[in-house]
Design a protein around this nucleic acid. Structure first.
Lengths: 209, 209
DNA sequence: CTTTCTATTGTCCAAAGGTCCAATACATCT
DNA sequence: AGATGTATTGGACCTTTGGACAATAGAAAG
């Protein structure tokens, strides 16, 4: 599928060429030209070096011209990502994304999908929960924890180490570890990082070990 | 890519066969079997005939087993769609979607994307605008991170180990550790648990070491 | 009295995490 | 050309985490 890269530098980045071979690169959206035919080509928009109003103008222009826009940011942030997606971008990634990832985004957009970092997907979902709530907690198994386990889990949720938890609860580090092992098993998490996130209702990616 | 259809009727729909030829169909998620290997197979979940708790249980079960879940609804609605996506579904479509659309969804999921009806995309975006937090993050120093450091930090925010981050970014574990040390120093956190919480804007207790 | 569950703790060990010192290569700026 | 920052990587080493195996004690239920 036809695609074009828009970057203020006018030079393709090495990773783009690694991903797609030679690339058509232009300095601004207007140089990309009109969209011909039914299939919406992909326009990769590097937004580094653009201020917010410029970024918005480019995005709206590219979307209005009929492109599927993949935004490439030098400093990705949630707010920027949401702003771009709300303006009609179909993908949001890092400007130095690996060639393989660029190719995957290309395939996804070519088939009518969306692409964004997994963390952003989960964040979007959690945001949507605030306005369209569902009554099911992230981990109903929290009820399965004993009272002592819950106390330990709450300390982990605050970022405490085993030593700190032992001091806070006046028990030995070994006891903390025993409770943690039981908690991990009951909640189906792998380690304390995932426990901390789960306790705060932050979704984690599913890892197949 | 391997895929399986879950439908209470145990019979494949004609459109599924039109889309993919012969289909593997089972009556419930448990019959789909465990996920083997690194690639997450697709599980097409027909939710017609399931009540809400059944639907949620199936979805969580399939996601936990490592499947990419595409939900097929007989009467799609925004609330149902958001609920399904929040439980981890990667796509949401009509149970009578055209074969071509099913194939496109298949391709999108195979390449790490999301698929949902365009109207739902726009609805999600508008919902996100209502609750996206003010641009004052817990750690303004996030701007101090280099682009690669941010990518590593985002992976930690999802609960990933150093090994998993190395694989995800195609770098060595040693490099991940180097980035993490720099990130800890810049953000003033002690370890990856506190980093994960900070990235998700969860306050932690202050520890004096 | 017995069984079960929970809480606590020990020893030992492997794996993961994190730090220190060091190095190369590339891009950018002066 | 030189300086600086970033990305990447190695080796070595120490600390923390987490699992395995094992044990005691108290409370509650049958």
């Amino acid at each position: 599928m036809e695609q074009v890269f828009v970057t203020p530098s006018k030079l393709p980045r090495r990773r783009w060429e690694q991903a797609f071979g030679s690339c058509r690169v232009v300095a601004q959206v207007a140089d990309a030209g009109p969209v011909k035919g039914q299939r919406q080509p992909i326009l990769w928009l590097e937004i580094a070096g653009l201020d917010q109003s410029q970024r918005e103008a480019y995005l709206l222009e590219a979307v209005a011209a009929g492109y599927q826009v993949a935004v490439m940011s030098a400093m990705p942030s949630e707010q920027e990502a949401l702003a771009c997606l709300n303006l009609g971008a179909r993908a949001y990634c890092h400007v130095e994304a690996a060639p393989e990832q660029l190719r995957e985004i290309h395939v996804v957009l070519s088939h009518g999908g969306l692409w964004m970092p997994p963390s952003l997907v989960q964040r979007l979902m959690s945001l949507s929960l605030r306005v369209v709530p569902t009554p099911t907690p992230e981990h109903p198994q929290l009820d399965e924890l004993t009272s002592r386990e819950l106390m330990v889990a709450e300390q982990v949720a605050l970022g405490a180490s085993n030593q700190e938890i032992a001091a806070a609860l006046s028990i030995s580090e070994r006891t903390v570890k025993a409770h943690l092992s039981s908690i991990f098993s009951k909640l189906g998490v792998r380690d304390r990082v995932q426990l901390a996130l789960a306790m705060n209702n932050i979704p984690t990616f599913t890892s197949v070990n």
